[in-house]
């Protein structure tokens, strides 16, 4: 090299790496997360590059990104209104579907993006040493980047339909945080499963579709009260019951949700995040030999 050394003498340079068989499948977690944090720019750059590659930064791309969920919401709205023979006539109903769908699609996109994040990363896995958790995290950050503008769309719809933004919407922010944690955990889990079973991603659309219909996205959570007792218990175990249901209730209907819902949302999101991260990290050194 002709130019003088420009790399700062940080802890990475002059660092002392030891590679040994990992005990109990996990690398030293402190170093792992330290290295991960140092590379956070990767996730930013990755989502930027992906957005560029999918033309999502062109005028038409942005327009499509907004139009697509709105059209989808309209289709579901009509469907439900027809099926319920006009019973669902509360004024907030359309906003409710829009809010639910937007958050649901954030989770679903994180899942599908996460599932392919490792298998489609290609040679970077074979040729560069880095905490692989970066890949599903990038996938989540990509779908979050697509989710954020839809909040503006939601606000526009909420005002246009007279639903407005109730004061409880402030509490929707921590709920959104829980949703993001949940989506991240799911992305990590699916990324791992996809490495071992390459058909996972092809099952995913069906799973997502069924999950959409069994979650309080197209109907409000009050609908659950009409179900038989036993079914109610099962239906409320669905993580999206408290996460997406709580989100929409806070954001759209302006109703405070019971503490039990907060607890269940927090348990699900923290649980899935921790399990997802541990499963992923304990398997990730296997990835390089399996791609």
């Amino acid at each position: 090299m002709s130019n003088p050394r420009t790399v700062p003498q940080d802890d990475y340079l002059g660092e002392f790496h030891v590679y040994a068989p990992h005990k109990a499948g996990l690398p030293p977690l402190r170093t792992y997360f330290h290295e991960l944090w140092r590379r956070r720019e990767f996730a930013v750059e990755m989502s930027r590059a992906q957005v560029r590659a999918s033309n999502a930064n062109t005028v038409f791309g942005i327009f499509w990104n907004i139009l697509n969920p709105v059209l989808l919401a309209s289709v579901y709205f009509l469907l439900v209104v027809v099926l319920s023979r006009g019973a669902a006539r509360e004024s907030w109903y359309f906003s409710y579907i829009v809010a639910g769908l937007f958050s649901f699609y954030f989770v679903a996109r994180s899942m599908s993006g996460g599932a392919s994040s490792v298998t489609s990363a290609g040679r970077i896995i074979m040729n560069t040493a880095f905490p692989r958790l970066l890949l599903p995290l990038s996938a989540v950050s990509i779908s979050f980047r697509r989710f954020l503008p839809t909040l503006l769309v939601y606000a526009a719809i909420a005002f246009a339909t007279g639903t407005g933004i109730p004061p409880t919407a402030v509490l929707a922010i921590p709920m959104l945080l829980l949703i993001v944690m949940f989506a991240t955990g799911m992305a990590m889990l699916l990324a791992t499963v996809q490495v071992y079973f390459r058909d996972t991603k092809s099952f995913l659309p069906y799973v997502t579709r069924i999950w959409l219909y069994t979650s309080p996205v197209l109907y409000p959570i009050t609908f659950y009260d009409r179900l038989p007792e036993a079914l109610q218990v099962v239906a409320r175990l669905n993580p999206l019951y408290s996460l997406v249901g709580g989100w929409s209730d806070l954001l759209v209907r302006g109703e405070l949700i019971p503490a039990s819902m907060w607890i269940s949302a927090a348990l699900w999101s923290v649980g899935v995040l921790v399990v997802g991260a541990l499963v992923f990290i304990s398997r990730e050194r296997d990835f390089a030999v399996r791609l």
Partner: peptide
């Protein structure tokens, strides 16, 4: 550091 060894130990000093 891409493939962890199955047995043994590798020490590397530097980037």
């Amino acid at each position: 550091g891409i493939l962890p060894p199955t047995a043994g130990r590798i020490e590397v000093r530097g980037k």
